[in-house]
Structures are given as C-alpha cells and as structure tokens.
Simulated assay, not measured.
Amino acid sequence: MHILVIDGHHVEAEFRAKFGPAHDYSFFNTNYSDRAEQDRMVENMLAAADTVDVVFSGEGGQSYLLFAHLTIPVFVEASDESLIESLEYEGVALDALLFGYCGLPTLVNRPLLEVSVWNENNRQKLAETCAALGTDYRVVADRVGLVTPRVVCQIINEACFTLQEGTASMQDIDLGMRLGTNYPRGPFAWANAIGVERVYAVLEAMWHDTHDERYKVCPLLKRQALSGEPFNI
C-alpha cells in the first residue's frame, strides 16, 4: 500500500516500524512559512493522492480534509479532539471514510492500532484496510483521549502531583514505575518522549470534556508545558 502521512515527521520512524518495509510512504509537513509554500504543498499532496491507498493525518490542522471526499480511508490523530468535535463545522459527508487514531509519539508502533469511527457503516472498510496494512486493531469510543492517551497522560499527571507535593523525586518516581509496574518508561521519561505539550493538550481537552477531577492538570505539568521544555530527569 501507499501510505501518505501528513504532519507525522516526528513519528516517521514509528510509522515505518509499525507497518513495515512492504509499503510505500510519503510524508508531508504542512507547517507552511508562506502562502506560496502552502499552495505548493497542497499541489504536491493532491498529486500524490492518485496513488495513495490510505492517509494518516498528524497534528498539523485539518489538511486531511483535502482527502475526505475521496474513496480512500483517512485516519485523523484524535488524542486531544474527537472526530465529532474536529468535524462538527466542516460539512464532511456522513459516509466519508474517516477514522480517529492514536498517533502520539511512542504510541504508534504497537501491535494494536487504536481507532474510532466516524460512521459505523464503515467498519468493514476499516477491517479491510487494517488487514492490508498488516495490523491488528481495536475500535474505541469517539471520545477525546481515546483509551491509551487517556491512561498514560493521567499517570503522568499523577506523577507530577506526587513530585509537586515533595513525596518523591522525579528519578525515584520513574524508577519505581518501571520496576514496580514493568512499564517501558517512567512517567517523566514518557512525558518527554511524547512531548510535554502534547500531554498537557490531552489532559486539558479531557478536563474540558468531562470536568472529572482525575483530569485536572497539575500546575507543575502546566508550567512545564507552557515553558516548552522537557522534564530535567
């Protein structure tokens, strides 16, 4: 298959590892510096569409809407905004082949592709697409945070509260989580790997969606995200 990835350069290695060398890949970055560059990028993406079998859109806005009218599956990164929220005012047809997916760094290259669906009638197409991509998948509710981002970001948030309260050091918390729960990373190392700003965005979106105290962002995490700096582990 020819996989087109929009604004996914930061997880390019994960995409290639996830789906393997049997597929062709095109990566486009829509972080335009001026209008002329934007027009050239749109032209290039549309030209590539003739040979594309599936589109994955990352975190760079709504360029995926260029492909929403085509009969190819389009997967939209939905960790901090559900499909229904992101498409509410865009006039996208109900039968469009749109799916949400978990595209945060460290969470792409996993055995399961975590997805939500725009239209329940498209589940068969989803199954066919995932089979062609060579990946297992699970459908989750179209809610902000999906499942894995919600869990991982909540763990990071709780770790920040623990650090803020002076209960343990950053290093001790990371070590304790790795040894005690067999997680691949401690919460602060994981926050750095995902991107602290992305963790903050997921938690903030979940808080506004649910007003559940579990997702209220720790002030320490908020300050770190707004500073644009990783945790100094």
Results as ranks from 00 to 15, higher is better:
33 S>G: 01
161 F>I: 08
32 Y>H: 02
88 E>Q: 05
176 G>A: 14
38 Q>D: 09
59 E>G: 15
186 G>Q: 08
126 L>F: 11
129 T>N: 07
44 N>D: 14
21 P>W: 11
28 F>P: 00
20 G>T: 10
162 T>N: 08
37 E>W: 01
140 V>N: 00
137 Y>M: 01
170 M>V: 01
13 A>T: 13
116 S>K: 05
17 A>Q: 13
149 P>K: 01
92 V>I: 14
140 V>L: 02
22 A>W: 08
136 D>H: 13
5 V>C: 06
31 N>K: 13
118 W>G: 09
152 V>M: 07
205 A>T: 07
176 G>R: 06
27 F>R: 11
225 A>E: 04
161 F>H: 15
118 W>I: 03
135 T>K: 12
175 L>T: 05
82 S>F: 14
45 M>N: 11
57 S>C: 06
201 A>E: 14
9 H>C: 15
99 F>M: 07
106 T>G: 07
28 F>L: 15
13 A>H: 09
68 A>I: 07
226 L>I: 04
154 Q>Y: 09
48 A>H: 07
209 D>K: 04
98 L>N: 04
85 E>S: 15
179 L>A: 09
62 Q>W: 03
185 R>V: 03
149 P>C: 10
217 V>K: 04
232 N>Y: 10
31 N>E: 10
221 L>Y: 02
25 Y>L: 05
150 R>W: 05
89 Y>R: 14
126 L>T: 13
55 V>L: 09
69 H>L: 01
128 E>C: 07
79 S>T: 15
83 L>N: 03
41 M>T: 15
46 L>C: 12
148 T>A: 12
58 G>E: 07
188 F>I: 13
99 F>D: 11
83 L>M: 06
26 S>Y: 01
123 R>F: 02
164 Q>S: 14
162 T>P: 09
127 A>Q: 14
153 C>V: 01
91 G>E: 12
98 L>Y: 02
17 A>R: 15
134 G>C: 09
89 Y>K: 12
191 A>W: 02
31 N>I: 01
46 L>K: 15
158 E>T: 06
118 W>K: 06
39 D>H: 04
108 V>G: 06
85 E>K: 15
42 V>L: 10
214 R>T: 13
15 F>G: 03
50 D>E: 14
200 Y>Q: 09
169 S>K: 04
69 H>E: 11
193 A>K: 11
22 A>S: 13
198 R>P: 08
131 A>Q: 14
72 I>A: 10
104 L>T: 04
132 A>L: 13
63 S>F: 06
108 V>R: 07
96 A>N: 04
